[in-house]
Amino acid sequence: MKSHLLALYNNMEEAGLVLDELNATKLPGFSMKDVVIKSPIEHPELSEKLGKRPVYVQLFTLLGVLFGPITGLTLVASAQASFIYQVRGGRPVVPVPPDMVLTYEFFILSGVLMTVIGCFIGWKLPGNRSPLYNTRVSEDKIGILVKAEESTIPYLNEIFKKHHSLEILGEGVK
């Protein structure tokens, strides 16, 4: 049975020390993978301590920029070639420069859409709510959320308290 614990800290330095200690201590039923930082701004120097957590958004972008122009160009060119073909202004029925312009726009549109979709998937949003949240996290506090076996929770609680946590939230913890 795993349980959650969220501790709030005043500043990054304190939170950093906690993470260092969590990293150093070996506790049963707990690993750094179970640690989540919740912060009002991005903290690359804190996230570093969590180890490598890859982001896959770029793959979606790549997919988008490949898919968009190819389908776009195919659709436009085959639409021009469909039905009774209509000559306009003496230009070729499938003209290159206009199709390039449109392909370019499809390239960007599909790239943007896929990036945003990739981002939502990366966020696991909407819908995925990670447990234990405190509104002060969106203001100016740094939260550290851990997930561990029930038996390990008191030890973690100890570590959090040692570094002057402002508040500790969690199941069965006061």
């Binding site: 919740k38 903290h43 990366g122 966020w123 949003l125 909407p126 709510r129 990670s130 996290v137 969106s138």
Partner: peptide
């Protein structure tokens, strides 16, 4: 969308 400001 349920943003919580997690590191991920």
């Amino acid at each position: 969308l349920g943003w919580q400001g997690t590191d991920r």
